[in-house]
Design a protein around this nucleic acid. Sequence first.
DNA 1: ACCCAGGTGGCCC
DNA 2: GGGCCACATGGG
Length: 216
Amino acid sequence: MKSLKNIYQTLCNHFGSQHWWPGESPFEVIVGAILTQQTSWNNVEKAINNLKKENLLDSKKIRDIKNEKLEKLIQSSGYYRQKTKKLKNFMNFLWEKYNGRLEKLFNQPIPKLRENLLSVNGIGKETADSIILYAANKPIFVIDTYTVRLINRLEITKEKDYNKIQQLFQKNLPQDTQLFNEFHALIVKLGKDYCKKKPRCDECPLRMKCNYQKSN
DNA sequence: ACCCAGGTGGCCC
DNA sequence: GGGCCACATGGG
């Protein structure tokens, strides 16, 4: 089997450090993780900047703000009515269970933390794992559509189940937060540049390891 | 004019 | 346990 470590090295040499997550605080990472669901980061940035401008990037303020106002502020991020509810759900969860303190939320074993995050309506596996890795700085591997597409095209596995793919990465790599951080970010970078539904295999840095172009 | 983006939950069988 | 659908904006 193609070594994940080897793929990581290739991407790292090609693209360099990605400096993820693009956010100044754990709280900002969480808001971004919810807003970027099925949405380009460019649209999310505008929404986050709107919140910053009004000094509303704060869990209590978002909890208490009127839905209509929040919807307006995050409109550019798409699905804005849904995402308003999702943000509210998380803030209520944070205040009801952890007294509004992220340290308290983060201060529990990864499986328990994940389970608790997943209990919030609007936080699914990828968002939960993004929060654990990029906000809490704990080692868990984030799987997104780019990751599934990549390993399917590399023919590492045909598996599509989130948890199984995550296990594959975690079992074949050292449990290193910084490595997980960079690797996932690099996969997204590769995906955006070369490995979309309509790929650009001819210039892909992984083309020598990938059978997709030939079998396509 | 399309196609797509750093998903999720609900509903159906 | 999987397949389909709604959700919505902005950039290529």
